[in-house]
Design a protein around this nucleic acid. Sequence first.
DNA 1: CGCGGAGTTGAAGCGTTTCAAACGGGGTGG
DNA 2: CCACCCCGTTTGAAACGCTTCAACTCCGCG
Lengths: 283, 283
Amino acid sequence: MTLDTTPFADSSLDACIDRCCPVPIPQRGSLADLLELLGSPAGARGSVPESIPLALWRVPQHAALVHEGSRGRSIYVVRHGFFKRSKTLEDGYEQVLSFMQAGEILCFEALHNGVQPASLVALETSSVYVLPVAELNSLHLRCPQLAEALQRALSRQLLHATESVEMMAAVSSEVRIARFLMWWSSRMAAMGQSPRRLRLRMCRRDIASLLGVAHETVSRSLTSLSEEGLLRVSNRDVEILDMDHLHARARCTRSPGTCDKERREPRLATPEALQHRSADAVM
Amino acid sequence: MTLDTTPFADSSLDACIDRCCPVPIPQRGSLADLLELLGSPAGARGSVPESIPLALWRVPQHAALVHEGSRGRSIYVVRHGFFKRSKTLEDGYEQVLSFMQAGEILCFEALHNGVQPASLVALETSSVYVLPVAELNSLHLRCPQLAEALQRALSRQLLHATESVEMMAAVSSEVRIARFLMWWSSRMAAMGQSPRRLRLRMCRRDIASLLGVAHETVSRSLTSLSEEGLLRVSNRDVEILDMDHLHARARCTRSPGTCDKERREPRLATPEALQHRSADAVM
DNA sequence: CGCGGAGTTGAAGCGTTTCAAACGGGGTGG
DNA sequence: CCACCCCGTTTGAAACGCTTCAACTCCGCG
């Protein structure tokens, strides 16, 4: 809480290392802040030992927090910012695996054999708490609340992995895009931001890689959804105009034709369509 | 270890409850067995308190271990057997999310809000260790090795989730099937079984649901791969004949045509093709 | 024996990929 | 400061692959 305002020292020194490696932030994080970030209930954060030092790192935009194949000696908790987790395949194709936001645990997968299975790149200037694996046990002993919070955060992490599978399992690419937008929207809502105004941090190619479609298809699906009046797309800013119908589209399991066939006809958001929204939301 | 032989009491009583709910197994599990199952190094299992009781449940084939939406009061560790994790969508479509095998942790996702996000059905008669969430903390205190083993198993679990994304991210459905088979093969190898002789426990529809394709496409891709000489398919038994080429096919990131174009021509496993295998394996 | 589910195969429609071209914006260098 | 280039994005057209619907076989089961 005390770090919410201007957590980064925007000195001239920062400018010259902007595209380099992550660097420690002068201010150190607080354990209470980390617990709140992980979603620990406020009541459980009363008697937190403040003496425990916590490293807080700054990760400039486009900088890699970890490289695929490197040794994994720490786990991280995103304090704020945005990360892309990806793998580079043998033929040079970059396979995006997930996008990670504030409150999420990074690099826990590397724990079981000590090797990072994927790279992590900050898509905007970000900051992460650093928890060295070697210190995890002593941390858990000195602060049981942290152990519990990490456990619950890991549980959430597994749930997020499930959501990725649900996104990608849609047969129609348009439905995949719709699910991706709904997923993003719910993430924004969970972070206390507007679920309607989405600012995509990644390029179309990254979305396409995650969803397993061509990047042109992402573009086409977005324009198609916007022509139906469900979205307004401007570069990487997406505004959801019709949340109900977008949600209905995201639920489609079969080919786009068989679901909401009649709704796909109106290519403009007519006043009539607006009136139907509340009624359709009930079903 | 002591339970490896005939862990199930195949009495006549079992027959009548075969399609019902999971039931506790007369024999209780041992902590050392659980630790080995989770992949804990043998050296760390010396001083394990044997007095701690561990519940071991039997789950008959086709029985549900947990139902979507129910309360999650326990986590489970698959002792042996095979589970399908799935969600039933509003329109009745069953979305398969993953398949879980021995050593994997089930229902950890339910920990953070207490509700099961998906159902778990045993695809063959299985058994699971039951760890009530309420007892987890005391278990960790009484046996730190278990806490560490669970942590590493969770790390592995997150890695498995990543593998699912990699499977589904392939654009071509044939590549998805190839990746699915390779994934299954590596699982078999990790369990000490043959990586070439695969016995699929699920129907084509379940595979199709997981991979996001039509179930006819699964059938077609399997016959296509077998016509190329990479597989031999007989119902749910799949034998991998050409592991190298199947692996190469699984790595394809683009349309099937652009990758290994020349290799797809021979529709029969000619002796010539067999000679090429070892040479191709180097690249 | 008949039934239903799982699996396979065929044919037609169409959605997606691919290649190609054009546009726009942000950055760099002149 | 502008021009330029590069990259991300969009759109078009054609080929391809997938879905869909259909028919059929096989197998287990009542």
